[in-house]
Design a protein around this nucleic acid. Sequence first.
DNA 1: ACCTTTTACTTGAAGCGTCAAGTTTTAGGG
DNA 2: CCCTAAAACTTGACGCTTCAAGTAAAAGGT
Lengths: 192, 192
Amino acid sequence: MDATEPRWLTPEERETWLELVGLFIRLPTALDAQLRRDAGLSHFEYQVLAGLSEAPDRTLRMSDLAVFADGSLSRLSHVVKRLEQRGWVRRTPDPCNGRYTLAVLTDAGMEKVVATAPGHVEEVRRLVFDPLTPARRRQLRDIGTRINAAIGPDDCPAHLPRRPVPTAGNNGTPATTADPDGPAEPPEGTSP
Amino acid sequence: MDATEPRWLTPEERETWLELVGLFIRLPTALDAQLRRDAGLSHFEYQVLAGLSEAPDRTLRMSDLAVFADGSLSRLSHVVKRLEQRGWVRRTPDPCNGRYTLAVLTDAGMEKVVATAPGHVEEVRRLVFDPLTPARRRQLRDIGTRINAAIGPDDCPAHLPRRPVPTAGNNGTPATTADPDGPAEPPEGTSP
DNA sequence: ACCTTTTACTTGAAGCGTCAAGTTTTAGGG
DNA sequence: CCCTAAAACTTGACGCTTCAAGTAAAAGGT
């Protein structure tokens, strides 16, 4: 069992790791709880609605929406069906290309997003940004980028098209590496 | 809809947040995939087995195990039932106190952990620690601590006892705030 | 000593996500 | 102009998690 002794984690790494495992389990849970309590939505459902709310014409093809929301097409299909039954989304075949399905946010859906976003953003702030100093926020972003890169390209659960991902409200900020610590210029945006 | 305009996220925070959402979805998925592929175990199941493997006598009460694995007692009960059917865990009522159930890791279970741990630790290293400089690892730990604190005490999904959590192989490291950047002293330990 | 409460856990049903087929529509090749 | 192949979903079944009850043992009150 001890052939070529594996590289165990150092005590510090171990501590970090346990901290992270807790985070990965509890943060999604906490955010889901807030959304479910205040809006009756799962985090994934919210992502879907928020993604549509920022798309041109509040419309996106299912595949693109799946990439944006970080889920499989199958999952999205099930979820959109439920959202459609609740009256927040409509589906139509793309007139230009019949095998695409366009998901469109209804007016009721838009209202739902508008009503839900502020509370959710507030919770994200409270749990993630408020407890961190500006310096740590920058560090966190950097760390996230690096680990995401290590995980590899968006080869999500399954078979998804390759696209640069329409990162929603792509305001002019060109994702450079060095940038000052946000002087707080509130932009529009519902996908916190 | 715009009564007391909410504090939207700044563009930098928004970037950070999207990075994080990706991380929270993809890291667990990636680790689950590795464990499932190489060992046929979910991450939660692994946590349970690893937790037991480091407990005295490879034994833990269900409640304690639930806290350690960050899950509800109900979930643990279902999972342990399955692990028991696979021959890796045994359950017995505590002779000292009949309402406690003790989960015990069998020899087969221990072998499973020993066979699985190195590969999992290697994946954790590859995805989380290798892409980070020592300084960033320290930052990550610190950030994790702060956000975890903001989420609040271990009031997990449900009704769980209050205990300082037996953080598994509690080697002499007394979780102080300042500590050098691990000179790499490989300790025993199977919960990465 | 008995009865209520609390603790610790188990169980069953319901909901959501994943996986493995289907469908339908477009694109290509001969 | 067909005929196969690929793309873009959709659907159904299975497994796991959660939620709400249910059970059994120990504490605590009177």
